[in-house]
Design a protein around this nucleic acid. Structure first.
Length: 574
RNA sequence: GCGCCGGUAGCUUCAACUGGAUAGAGCGCCGGAUUUCGGCUCCGGAGGUUAUGGGUUCGACUCCUAUCCGGCGCACCA
């Protein structure tokens, strides 16, 4: 339980116990009351809107109610020393020295789990799921890191999380990919010239995959594609998935589970799923309207199985079969989601690129239909990444060979910076990624700035021959934080709230923003020593004010916890 | 045409704790500090009708509605 939940439940209980005294008839709204850290210009530790919320339902003037609540709380909660009524009726609360000390010591006790909430959800997070036809490019990066960090965040809160990758190893693109490998193999084995046809993959990595197969599988003859297709498909996919897994590894991402689309089809799961939907009357045989956008050349009016997704809020019903009667990508994906539901996840999350936004309604409809609305299903969309170099746009075109791969990116910028920067923006907003700026060692570079704060802290503990793992606690009698220290404490108290909101809203970007703000406070605290000798931490190799260690340790704990979730390393020296 | 996302300070940068108080950072600009626990910094200042109109609310950047601008998507592809 974090500070806010702890005191809010205490406050709620006191209100309920004393509702007659407070002349409250209706206390239902207590569950939407907020307890939080007040805006920074207000010199208090906690703030609540309790009287604003309760006054309306009970028709009591907010300030009168606030005053009554204030007196009650001061009497009942000894950790509270002072309460002010501000604005329309906010209660601003200041801890007593004892209250402050108890809460800080609590942080020191919890340390690595400080900020975490003991949740017990079961999550499946599907992310990346890049087509297995070649290495990852920069466009995949953002969603990959987003998914990974979101998983870390939910894990930090005590949930069970499976990080999953759906391998689209079925359909025409794979056929083209296998054919490309096949032709490269013939190029190597039979010296046939590779002619790049329209749908084939030209990249150099295809040659490497081909070469490996030729080396390792001497027995296969490769005379006709039809004859060796299944085997070659298997081998080619291993080759391309290894490239992708290597990219992921370098980004610090490890999935728990790789799910193959081909398996789905082979095990007849698609047929079964569609039958299930048919029995619920969500699937019918019929004709679709022609597409509404640009006129399509190969549109044919054919009788086929259709999922009635408009019943669940989609804009149109969706085809489950192609013209030739085989399953569409969507049909397979419905079966895949049915499988996820059957694996008993309470929460399914898909991380998608902006170009797949249009797909969300139909797959959500399918999940609703399959789960009878019992599963939480969320699609998070990551908007585009725009690459810059020295402030100038760096064009990424998908024409052959020109796209920028994850590998190219990592040759320029380290993994830590990439991870931090890809999250330093809300996923709903386009992201500018300037890979010259990221290499700068200045305040402009948030990654550096946060890491530097931690390195500075380590320099202090090094000179004092102390360790950040040492036990430390606050003695309430001697405790009197200065203005800078108070700001730090309040920021530290805010941490569990950041985690809670980030997890509830599935918005991990709040973490890097918070860490940056915390670092600003720490650097300011540090710099005070440059201005005024009184504020220096160390004198003649000894700590000047033993109290100051408290704040240094607090900052270190939270930065560490935050960066762990982000998967960004923290050097002790820089 | 339809759908999704965005529009916040001079800015091709963005936040705002799921409806709260005087809307905050960064860059740039102006003015100061600094022979140091660790240098690549720190402090202060100016700068806002939150795209626009209407609505809900004690209270709106946040919710509803209409309009404008920008991005993405609108297949039997994956």
């Amino acid at each position: 339980m974090n500070i806010f939940e702890n005191y809010l439940s205490k406050i709620s209980k006191i209100i309920i116990d004393n509702k007659d005294h407070l002349k409250l008839k209706n206390v239902e709204k207590l569950n939407i009351v907020n307890l939080e850290v007040p805006p920074s210009h207000i010199n208090f530790d906690l703030s609540t809107n309790i009287s604003l919320v309760l006054s309306k339902a009970n028709k009591i003037e907010p300030k009168t109610l606030a005053n009554n609540i204030k007196n009650l709380l001061l009497k009942k909660i000894h950790h509270f020393e002072k309460i002010d009524i501000a604005g329309p009726g906010f209660l601003n609360i200041k801890f007593s020295k004892e209250g402050l000390a108890i809460n800080i010591n609590d942080i020191f006790r919890n340390k690595r789990s400080y900020g975490s909430k003991k949740s017990k959800g079961k999550f499946n997070i599907e992310f990346v799921s890049a087509n297995p036809t070649g290495p990852m490019h920069v466009g995949h990066c953002r969603g990959a890191i987003f998914g990974d960090v979101l998983s870390n965040l939910l894990l930090f809160n005590g949930n069970k999380v499976i990080k999953e990758y759906y391998i689209n190893d079925y359909g025409n693109q794979i056929k083209n990919f296998v054919e490309s490998v096949y032709l490269r193999i013939r190029e190597i084995k039979f010296k046939e010239k590779f002619v790049a046809k329209e749908n084939l993959y030209p990249g150099n990595y295809i040659k490497e995959i081909a070469l490996k197969i030729v080396k390792n599988k001497k027995k296969i003859k490769f005379e006709k594609l039809d004859e060796c297709f299944e085997e070659l498909k298997k081998l080619s996919l291993i080759g391309s998935m290894n490239l992708i897994k290597e990219d992921l590894r370098k980004l610090g991402i490890k999935h728990d589970y790789f799910f193959s689309e081909t398996d789905l089809v082979k095990k007849n799961l698609v047929t079964k799923t569609i039958k299930k939907l048919q029995s619920k009357n969500y699937v019918e045989e019929g004709f679709l309207e022609p597409p509404k956008g640009e006129p399509s050349k190969n549109w044919k009016k054919v009788k086929r199985l259709i999922f009635k997704s408009t019943k669940f809020g989609d804009d149109a019903d969706r085809a489950l079969q192609k013209n030739d009667g085989s399953w569409t990508y969507f049909a397979n994906d419905v079966a895949y989601h049915s499988n996820k539901i059957n694996r008993n996840f309470e929460n399914l999350i898909n991380i998608l690129g902006a170009d797949h936004t249009g797909y969300i309604k139909r797959i959500s409809a399918a999940v609703k239909a399959l789960s009878e609305n019992k599963v939480n299903f969320n699609c998070k969309v990551c908007q585009l990444v725009k690459l810059y170099k020295n402030g100038k746009p760096f064009k990424m075109s998908k024409r052959e060979g020109e796209f920028i791969s994850v590998q190219d990116l990592l040759n320029e910028v380290d993994k830590d910076s990439v991870r931090f920067m890809m999250l330093n923006r809300s996923n709903d907003v386009e992201l500018d990624f300037d890979f010259e700026k990221i290499k700068e060692k200045t305040k402009d570079n948030p990654v550096y700035y946060v890491q530097y704060a931690y390195a500075r802290i380590n320099s202090i503990t090094r000179s004092l021959k102390k360790n950040l793992n040492d036990k430390i606690s606050v003695n309430p009698i001697l405790f009197s934080p200065n203005e800078y220290e108070q700001k730090i404490i309040r920021k530290i108290f805010e941490w569990p709230k950041i985690i809670e909101v980030a997890a509830n809203k599935l918005e991990p970007h709040k973490i890097p923003f918070y860490l940056y703000e915390l670092s600003i406070l720490f650097h300011a605290y540090w710099s005070k020593g440059n201005e005024d000798i009184k504020f220096k931490f160390i004198e003649n190799g000894k700590i000047k004010r033993p109290e100051s260690l408290i704040f240094i340790y607090l900052v270190a704990i939270v930065i560490k916890n935050g960066m762990n979730i982000l998967g960004v390393s923290l050097p002790n020296k820089m």
